[in-house]
Design a protein around this nucleic acid. Sequence first.
DNA 1: TCCGAATGTGGGAGCGCTCTCACCACATGG
DNA 2: CCATGTGGTGAGAGCGCTCCCACATTCGGA
Lengths: 353, 353
Amino acid sequence: MNEKSRRSGLLHAGRPSPTLEDLATAAGVSRSTASRAINGGLKVSPEAQAAVDAAIVALGYTPNRAARSLVTRRTGSIALVIPEPDARVMMDPFFAAVITGVNEALRGTDMQLVLLMSRAGDDSARTMRYLRGGHVDGAIVVSFHEADDWAETLGTTGLPTVFIGRPWATGFGVPYVDLDNFEGGRLAARHLAGTGRTRLGTVAGPADMTAAVDRLEGWMQGIREAGLQPGPVVHGDFTTAGGADAARTLFSEAPELDGVFAASDLMALGVIDTVRGRGHKVPEDVAVVGFDNHSLLAANGLGLTTVTQPMVDMAVTAGQLLIRAIENPEEQLEPVIYPAELVVRGSTAGHSR
Amino acid sequence: MNEKSRRSGLLHAGRPSPTLEDLATAAGVSRSTASRAINGGLKVSPEAQAAVDAAIVALGYTPNRAARSLVTRRTGSIALVIPEPDARVMMDPFFAAVITGVNEALRGTDMQLVLLMSRAGDDSARTMRYLRGGHVDGAIVVSFHEADDWAETLGTTGLPTVFIGRPWATGFGVPYVDLDNFEGGRLAARHLAGTGRTRLGTVAGPADMTAAVDRLEGWMQGIREAGLQPGPVVHGDFTTAGGADAARTLFSEAPELDGVFAASDLMALGVIDTVRGRGHKVPEDVAVVGFDNHSLLAANGLGLTTVTQPMVDMAVTAGQLLIRAIENPEEQLEPVIYPAELVVRGSTAGHSR
DNA sequence: TCCGAATGTGGGAGCGCTCTCACCACATGG
DNA sequence: CCATGTGGTGAGAGCGCTCCCACATTCGGA
């Protein structure tokens, strides 16, 4: 009469997926023992463990995440929050690197990556609700702007969070992974000055992103250290088109520039385009330094001198940090800062002093 | 004595998140009525509905997905399966476009995107288990190779699935979204022939991907239709470096080529590099046609003639298709094929017949 | 010999939700 | 007047799992 036992299980498939109860029966143990055998196997006799293991294979058993999650209050997934407005920005390989890296960190864990891409205002509230709703065990936030209040909100909410890139407000104890952007900018300045360039222009990143601000400050400091005068500064949006536009403005203000620092490789590409469009040569007339060491561009005919940013590694570290934060909520995690390195290529070569 | 009522709720945060029971109490209705009010509100009096709505706001109530999922057998998330081996390939903006598009399709739904990136053999089995385990309501599979048996396995498993790109085995009734790659290849051939190029080389994509094969076949057909002889064919891996390598092989076999079709823009970039490296000019000596209409390269100095592939749109369509498949499992969905269009730019200009 | 402690096991409760069902009130029709 | 809906409601079961607790067994030391 207990014939209703063959319930639905998996919605779509033919046969219903076996439950823990089924597994226990097949293994000849109780539900409790089966559960213990699956999770770490403490206080389980070798025989019972073996029986359960065998039954798992035989039945193709997979624990029901929802049921487990309901009681453990762990979802087994983390969110990658990307608060960027449009597809254009997504094309930036930075995101590809972040996704790859975070995924890499999750390998071996049975955690899954949930992508949370939120747009303007209203949508970000929805994202926030989702995050606070306990649907994920933690979050990695990336590419945030000053206007976003992720750091504050998440910091106070108690949800384990790691930022990629220094957040504007560091007072909330939220750990982050970042590049030494200041030093990167400084290296660029020192290098350009070292090759004899003296009239330096800047295509900075968005003023509401810490990475852009730090790069700019380092660059300025480097220029001062070299005893040069900082030239004009124009802000771009990290895209190629934005870099080209910024460069046009730059050269219309100061046509005699012989060196430009762009705060991203994509923008540097735009700068080079503009320089060439004006009938000048890179690097003979104008040297260009980028930032990111973007692999797509490395293969490009003219090598681009740039500052290395190990994005994948940084993302991996962020993922690992988050896992630690989830597993050990009390531990106070320190920010991780990667050193910046300059890669010299063709775009800053051959200037006859 | 029922004072244990204030249980944990959300693991991390201070206050526990309210349950449906709390909500019902606050609204002065029963749990059942509250549930109905939340889900569609059929057979709920306006007063009750209003009371529940107010309570939701007041308490900041969010339904517990796990609990809901446990009984509905719907997880409210779909998987994006990317069976690519390494980060290098992830840099291809194709993936960025797919992610953006699918996410776009999910907007408005309360579905979430789970990223499943699997590597070689073993790992793909894990992915497969995850998919069959009922952890997601559906899957979008992208960039599959012939060796993968996703189409077969998923097709028979009953999990709603949509492919981006035609799968090798179409017999399983799995719907897909694709570009008319054949026509795209044909357009490229017709265009090159039309500009007077006669000695045509090919940098094809990986032979185990349908998109590459279809492009190659269309290209060959176009060459034949133009009354020309197909030149040498070398296979690349869709990356810039791969394209450059392939082009080297190509030109060592047939140095006199005056036109090359590369099955992706990234490879076309590599081809151009190689051509220039050999001291020849694009397009004067060698015309190059790419494939994808990759936005990153559009801004490049020399415009690349290419075949448009509306990747974001295609991904949106795939997402919508999947949602329909999930909501209406019986419906037989048809593949959607986008037309290919040629975009003529500088890389195929100015050949003096 | 007997008593903890350690080790292994199974029963039961309960996580927060949906859904079936019984029920009530009131309308409508014979 | 009673049969038959019909909109609205609430109690109760149960989804598959983990965890607490009670219980059985074994082992070491007093």
